[in-house]
């Protein structure tokens, strides 16, 4: 088990290296650079810009630029933002990343809390009214684009009923302790549910299919032949097996949620990485774009790593392979 985790973690390193290459190459492949954006006064003479480029090292050969970027990133230095006049990228990200993390965690929590029980219930009552209802909801959830669901949620639950705030991550400055927690939680509800909608729908279907498939397997018949109660057959023998692919997907899902939050955050004007990301793209703030790209890619890598480790934990067959 330990050897498996170590081996799997070591495989992570070359992937990480490749990711940095891709992130860098993508940023460089985009036309223009920080000095050709709209932010700058068009009256600045060409020579001055060239001088700045030279000073920033933008005219160096790409491998040299890559190496200098990589070495500073390795030391936790992503450079300075252009649009926020010289604030360090690290600083900007630190002010946003926890918000995105909370949002993703909330969405994931919502997904699991809804999808798993409904999936199980649907599977045990196949073709019942409830099952059809859940199926309909699942298809609607999968078919509804994130931004549309977000707007619908804002219109209905915020404007019409006024239950939840539609903007930002907190409503008042100066809240502390429990009040702050509740306030933040209320702000998470709409973006959280919106973000979790599609995966809730997907996991619900997954859970249902897995359970139905496992219910037909030989070892379930063995469990029944032992005289075990229906609950024991369902919650011990069936569920433990049905959860294997679900748990495996969770790691990956978390990485995806972080990146999926880009659109949702923008619709709700939620101050996370996503809003910062879109902003930076609009302003060609390459240091920030590269940093966030790298973070999202790494979070997906870490998610995959976690998925593999979870998989080994829940499925005994995997350990010695």
């Amino acid at each position: 088990m330990h050897r498996y985790i170590i081996r799997r973690t070591l495989q992570f390193i070359p992937m990480l290296f490749l990711v940095t290459v891709v992130v860098f190459a993508l940023a460089k492949a985009a036309p223009g650079d920080v000095l050709s954006g709209e932010m700058l006064d068009p009256n600045i003479p060409h020579e001055v810009l060239e001088e700045r480029r030279e000073a920033l090292g933008l005219n160096d050969p790409l491998p040299v630029q890559y190496w200098s970027w990589l070495t500073s990133v390795a030391q936790g230095d992503f450079g300075n933002s252009m649009q926020y006049t010289g604030r360090s990228v690290m600083d900007l990200i630190q002010s946003r990343i926890m918000n995105t993390f909370y949002l993703s965690l909330f969405a994931l929590g919502v997904t699991l809390a809804i999808a798993i029980p409904i999936g199980i219930y649907s599977a045990t009552r196949k073709y019942s009214l409830f099952d059809y209802g859940a199926t309909t909801f699942a298809f609607l959830g999968l078919a509804t684009p994130n931004f549309f669901a977000a707007l619908l949620a804002i219109w209905l639950l915020s404007f019409q009923f006024g239950w939840f705030p539609a903007q930002g991550s907190t409503s008042a400055i100066g809240l502390t302790g429990f009040e702050l927690f509740i306030d933040k939680l209320r702000h998470l509800v709409l973006p959280g549910f919106t973000l979790g909608l599609a995966s809730t729908a997907m996991y619900m279907r997954y859970m249902r299919t897995e359970i139905l498939e496992i219910k037909g397997s030989d070892f379930i018949r063995t469990a029944q032949a032992k005289g075990l109660s229906n609950n024991s057959v369902l919650y011990k023998h069936t569920l433990r097996n049905a959860l294997i692919p679900i748990i495996t997907l969770l790691g990956v899902e978390f990485g995806l949620l972080l990146s999926g939050a880009v659109i949702t955050e923008n619709v709700f004007n939620y101050p996370g990485l996503g809003t910062l990301f879109l902003n930076s793209i609009q302003n060609r703030d390459y240091p920030v774009i590269m940093a966030i790209n790298l973070i999202l890619a790494v979070s997906i890598l870490v998610g995959n790593l976690l998925a593999d480790i979870f998989y080994a934990v829940v499925d005994p067959r995997i350990r010695y392979d």
Binding site: F219, A223, A225, G227, S229, R240, R317
Partner: peptide, 25 residues
């Protein structure tokens, strides 16, 4: 009936490879 199964009547199946639950000892 569940008290009869496994207690009064034991049963073994054709496929020993799939008749045991893979995730339990």
């Amino acid at each position: 009936m569940r008290k009869v199964r496994g207690n009064d009547i034991g049963m073994i199946f054709q496929e020993p490879m799939t008749s045991l639950n893979p995730v339990f000892t």
